[in-house]
Amino acid sequence: MKAFTIVILGFIFGLGLIVSGMTNPDKVLNFLTFGNQWDGSLIIVMAVAMLIMMLTWQWVAKKEKPLFAEKFTLSDLKKIDSKLVIGSVLFGLGWGLSGICPGPGLVQLVSLKMEFWLFFAAVLGGMWLAKKV
């Protein structure tokens, strides 16, 4: 049951990425790049998703545990360290170049275009490298 439910949640998330156009790198790049082609859709996607999550966090604050699990698995990291900042800079460089972040990168694999497979293989390579360091 849990497995099935989570597959459905992944499905909804993926559908959200596709419906909002975020699986199209051009749409993301047109948000990141200023000019006549500017497309503000991304900010609406973020704002609506964040609003729903803000309300959800308020619910979470009042609860001891989730409905179907023993505890909330949350990051308790607080420190702003160089790893966080350097990682974010590197991610920003890659995202700004390609217009693809991990979610859309994963979903676009189903289009079976060579370029997205190449991109995703490199993402895995980058993750592997970063874990080695």
Binding site: G103, L118, V123, G125, G126, M127
Partner: peptide
């Protein structure tokens, strides 16, 4: 494409999120 992918992979791993 490879450079961008490597940056996204390494960056999100170091930053612990995307």
């Amino acid at each position: 494409i490879i450079v961008a992918g490597l940056l996204v992979g390494a960056g999100t791993t170091l930053a612990n999120g995307c």
